[in-house]
């Protein structure tokens, strides 16, 4: 396996508060990694540092052999790391189609191409294909601000995936989604990303989702990674049981006979 992302001794301080410390991670291509931890454990801080939203205090981040520490988000996106957000970041007053049209146009245009027409048939066809892949074609002409939460999440992720990034980081893709919808939503996302062979890291609080979709887990606690292991192993880890998933979930899980590795590979 080829390493695409190397994070070494990453630290982030907010004044006297240490939000992340001693973060060491190697991400290999095509891996699906779940980032778990309680609120304030440092998960989003980690994603924010890798994607350029926050500047790390110290450490090193290498993507495809290039140091990306302190680079602005747009540069990191152009290099191949994209992201979605816990609160979907879409163009709220525009339609779903226009959101993706703009996403394609910005992603593809550079130099004088920026002065070429925003709308063209060929781009529109690709937008429609993308809508179908993320199963939001029926909302094509709906204004984004009126969408159900699950559809807005899908739109946010679909926009982040337009550039076909090497790594896509998803911040809580199922937060605010009903129990009935969450697996359908994740199936759609994972199937769409599988087609592009995207490496995925996603923050998740729902352990059912983690067990079902990821191959490897990074468990955060008080700004540190306390466990980096395959999913089955990680969920049995004493530290993870105590500080992340809780003993009760662990007991339920083992009582249901769900202690083995269920894969998580796409």
């Amino acid at each position: 396996m080829t390493a695409v992302l190397e994070v070494r001794d990453l630290q982030k301080n907010f004044g006297a508060v240490i939000a992340a410390k001693d973060i060491n991670v190697t991400v290999n291509e095509h891996e699906i990694i779940g980032i778990i931890g309680a609120n304030g454990a440092g998960k989003t801080t980690f994603v924010n540092m890798v994607t350029g939203y926050l500047k790390p205090t110290s450490g090193q981040i290498e993507f495809a052999g290039r140091n990306i520490m302190g680079l602005p988000p747009r540069t990191i996106t152009n290099l191949g790391i994209s992201r979605s957000f816990q609160v979907p970041q879409v163009f709220a007053s525009e339609t779903v189609f226009d959101n993706l049209m703009m996403a394609y146009a910005i992603t593809e245009a550079s130099g004088l191409e920026l002065l070429s027409p925003l709308y063209n048939d060929e781009r529109a066809a690709r937008v429609d294909s993308h809508l179908a892949r993320y199963q939001i074609a029926e909302y094509r002409n709906a204004t984004s601000s009126t969408l159900p939460q699950g559809v807005r999440k899908l739109l946010d992720i679909a926009m982040a995936a337009v550039s076909k990034p090497t790594i896509l980081m998803l911040d809580e893709p199922t937060s605010g989604i009903s129990v009935e919808e969450k697996f359908d939503l994740m199936d759609t996302i994972m199937e769409a990303l599988r087609q592009d062979q995207t490496t995925v890291l996603f923050i998740e609080h729902d352990m059912e989702i983690v067990e079902r979709y990821v191959s490897r887990v990074l468990a955060f606690y008080q700004g540190r990674i306390i466990c980096d292991a395959p999913v089955a192993e990680a969920l049995l880890d004493p530290g993870v049981r105590e500080f992340v998933i809780g003993e009760e979930y662990h007991r339920t899980r083992t009582a249901n006979g769900n202690g083995g590795d269920n894969g998580g590979q796409l």
Partner: peptide, 15 residues
């Protein structure tokens, strides 16, 4: 429109 609506998304689309 994109900048007016959501600068964060514009940055994370690479511009």
């Amino acid at each position: 429109m994109a900048v007016r609506e959501n600068e964060i998304r514009v940055e994370y689309l690479g511009y």
